[in-house]
Write a protein that binds this DNA or RNA. Structure first.
Ligand code: MN
Ligand code: MN
Ligand code: MN
Ligand code: MN
Lengths: 212, 212
DNA sequence: CAACAATATTAGGTATACCTAAATAAATTT
DNA sequence: AAATTTATTTAGGTATACCTAATATTGTTG
């Protein structure tokens, strides 16, 4: 009876799952928001009735209206993460979890001031754009689109704690280089050290060609 | 169905009313928190059952335990106000209202980091101490304790929007000088301009002798 | 001191976001 | 195709913080 998610949390989670993996499903939402499946099912009905999401088969998508709602939500989330890193001394890999209350507690007007006073960042600590409607104009690929090799990490879309920790431990933050190779249904990534992640997560991190 | 107060809000409001006026009552709490009288009555029963408050006649006080709870709550509130002024460009007289969500959304550990990164303030923008258990060792008086005349404003405990605005408009912020005289049941205060406030509020602002 | 005003409480009800247990539907395996 | 596993929904219920209308209590004052 402690954490209660609100509409913004549902939209944020759905947006992120779609951006990372193409669509969202109820299991993913349930595990990201730490609520039971019936709770998700029920909540999605509300979002559907409000024309925020649409389901095809069992895949969940945001409507155009839903995307319009998502833009400022993602922006507030990502500015909050920059704030957490710069003003609360939170390590970048923990910043996603650290802001889950803050992001709802400041309005857009004040978030703009905060962003300015933080030096006008345009990416969150994980490399994701603060303005999702701005096309960053970068040639980004997800791991399943490119051959094994060496790349620069552009961003990590699905900001899951354990995943982020692995990157942090290997000193691979956005902007840094990594090498990867496939091992069956897994992907082995190395920076300062090596770690393995399931192929399912491949869509979540985006790479650019490394010119170094 | 938008704003919902939680236990911290009730404790903060009760603490403030007691500090400003000696005790709290249900009407004061109701108007400060914008909730109906039955809601207050009901909530106070819970706080009493939890040994946080105690009623004598109709006057409400915090227990020792309640005061222990109030200390970090007031601290978070007041650090939030400094943050609002410095990082969100909020005018000092509006900062109290601006932080009503923020103050609940950051834990003590991170509030300490924030405070440090804000330059270790020890007062909120209204002059009130961030650490309420530290005795500021200042000879402070409320208006009903001193003769008419010229004083330095030390702090404004009851941070009510209209009240703060009057001080701001007259350019009297904590640390600045004011002159006052009595006019029946009102008090007339002047800084850059003159305004009148009901005697009831006298306890809320504290003065020190001005040496200028 | 009765009358009126101010303050507080009771009674009965709402919305939101949760939950467990059980049922159903869809996708994978044997 | 039947059996099993995975994903989703239904049914029925909880806690928290609110509300209005009505009633009771206390304080003030003519
Ligand atoms: Mn994040
Ligand atoms: Mn991020
Ligand atoms: Mn305040
Ligand atoms: Mn203050």
């Amino acid at each position: 009876m402690d954490f209660r998610n609100n509409e913004e949390d549902y939209i944020k989670t759905i947006y992120t799952l779609i951006e990372a993996f193409g669509s969202a499903n109820e299991i993913g939402i349930s595990s990201d928001l730490n609520v039971s499946m019936p709770t998700v099912s029920e909540y999605l009905n509300k979002l559907e009735a409000k024309n925020i999401i649409k389901k095809f088969n069992r895949k969940i998508y945001l409507t155009t209206y839903g995307l319009d709602l998502a833009a400022p939500i993602m922006s507030r989330h990502r500015i909050s993460e920059v704030f957490a890193v710069k003003m609360l001394d939170v390590p970048w890999e923990e910043s996603h979890d650290a802001v889950m209350d803050i992001e709802h507690s400041i309005d857009d007007l004040h978030f703009n001031k905060l962003r300015k006073n933080l030096g006008n960042p345009d990416r969150c600590p994980h490399g994701n754009p603060i303005n999702i409607k701005e096309n960053p104009n970068i040639m980004e690929f997800s791991i399943n689109q490119v051959p094994e090799g060496r790349y620069k990490l552009s961003r990590i879309i699905y900001e899951e704690n354990n995943l982020l920790k692995k990157f942090a431990d290997a000193s691979i933050l956005p902007g840094q280089n990594l090498t990867f190779y496939r091992d069956g249904r897994s992907i082995v990534i190395s920076g300062n050290n090596e770690f393995k992640i399931p192929e399912k997560l491949a869509g979540s991190f985006r790479l650019v060609t490394s010119y170094e």
